[in-house]
Amino acid sequence: MKGFRLDRLPGLAVLSAPLVWAVLFLFIPYLIIFTYSFWLKKYPTFIPAFQFGNYAQIFADPQYYQVLLRTGKIALMVTALSLLLAYPFAYFLVFKVKSSRVRSLLYMAVIAPLWVSYLLRAYIWKTILGSEGVLNSFLVWTGILSAPTDLLLYNQFSMVVTLTYIFIPFMVMPIFTALEKIPRNLVEAAGDLGVTPWGALAKVIWPLSLPGVIAGATFTFCLTFGDFIAPMLVGGPDGVMIANVITSQYGAALNWPLGSALAVVLLIIVLIIIELSDRLQRKDRIGLG
């Protein structure tokens, strides 16, 4: 029995605007990207064609596949660093903090930066790490360094620090939720059976929190993978990521077909990761009964 029966006409009225919007501004644009990815660049614009040259170029020209590999590497490093920081934090909040007020306050403290402009959070690190920046001037002022170093900014190190700073809330949220769902008596039972706290962490808490870890890792990885603002601000020549290459194909290089093919590759990678993570989380749930 359906609780709410919409007559045919109101149903259509409710649906029509969202449906038209989804077709016009989502379905058709994705279709256009996909179509363009097979077209040919012909100065000054491009012409319809059906050929795989753009894709072949991405996987044959080191300039492109190396950017893909580098993007993957940076996204992995950001994910790993975020996990390393977020997990102990969430664990401490859920299992060590006794007062629920302190707990929600500390949780909010980690989530709150999400509301502060993304751009600002990237900008802050530019001012801190630059050779004329806060950290350098501090180190020189206190005499730790005799002259400013330019090792801090415009490299993969500054990219990983900045992106971790920006995306770490997305790691903390699902892990915190997963840890909160673990029944306390399971942890207590492990203690009663003589398992050390570290043993309980390894054998009870960690496996049960895996869905949260997977969700957080997926968010962090995908968000980093498609970013092009942070690389422009704090990444140097070896910090160029896939989205930057797409931007330049759509901009100065004026090769929309190649840009579209790169976008399709980016889209497919992200969708595969999301699908895999979905399956892993589902498998985990079933595995635990």
């Binding site: 449906l19 989502l26 968000l223 498609g226 976008a263």
Partner: peptide, 27 residues
């Protein structure tokens, strides 16, 4: 399909939404 389309921008990088709509508007 409708659900997937509407929710896709939530998980896709903003650049994809950006260039796909740029294509549409130019066309």
């Amino acid at each position: 399909l409708f659900r997937r389309l509407v929710l896709l921008p939530l998980v896709l990088p903003g650049i994809i939404t950006g260039i796909s709509m740029l294509n549409l508007f130019k066309l």
